[in-house]
Design a protein around this nucleic acid. Structure first.
Lengths: 121, 121
DNA sequence: ATGCCTGCAAAGCCTTTGCATCTGC
DNA sequence: GCAGATGCAAAGGCTTTGCAGGCAT
């Protein structure tokens, strides 16, 4: 656990904005001005593999990262790409019949989409 | 409707393999050896905007294209990335509570994931 | 001491785009 | 004849990676 990795984790835990890698880079650089973007990417990868954070890779856009590792659903704005947590109580839906295939289904990826308050009009 | 666009659509309609853009390029090149990859990309975009085909952009991987424009769910292999149609009768699940946010929710993106027959062991 | 980690820069991958030419209607 | 499409090649955005030196344990 290097200083870089710790700071990345701390900064990510501070916010609920689901930042992209370059946003994380900007956040961390305030405390570690000499950190490199490659290091940020590497540590985001390591931390998500370790289950400390979540990597949100969805729909042909930039990856985003979530300091909250608890499983929960997300909402994505179709206009600006902003991601928010789904309100409490929203759970992974059941997809009936999905197991009746020759694939061995292990899960379902779900994301609500719509318009965020800024883009909604 | 140019020859290129028509051939791309025809080749895509022939298969149920959800090919990537470069696979489509390879398929089409058998009939139009001088077509360019840029043209393939441009036409896949146009055709999906026109609702003739579906563009499947998901989870940080290459985009895939589906000659079947009818809405239906997909299953993606976590190992090889292969995409298949969900069996008949599998519908978009309801995500209860998802509308109780400050976002204006218009839909939900769902994809089943698991292991395809080849990768399942 | 050693093995993982860093910074830097270059490369990679997929996709998009500028431009001159060509084609379908 | 003209708008829109093509082929080619270059650029673009995001992400990964090779390498030499550095740091944590």
């Amino acid at each position: 656990m290097t200083k870089q990795r710790r700071v990345i984790l701390e900064e990510l835990r501070k916010v609920d904005t689901h930042p992209t890698a370059d946003r994380v880079y900007a956040m961390v650089r305030k405390r570690l001005p000499r950190i490199s973007l490659g290091t940020v990417y590497r540590n985001l990868e390591v931390l998500s593999e370790a289950g400390e954070i979540q990597k949100l890779e969805s729909a042909g856009t930039q990856k985003r990262f979530d300091g909250n590792a608890e499983p929960h659903l997300h909402i994505r704005c179709l206009v600006c790409g902003k991601v928010a947590d789904a309100p409490p109580g929203v759970d992974l839906p059941d997809v009936p019949g999905c197991h009746e295939s020759d694939f061995h289904i292990t899960g379902v990826r779900v994301e609500c989409v719509g318009y965020c308050p800024n883009c909604h009009n």
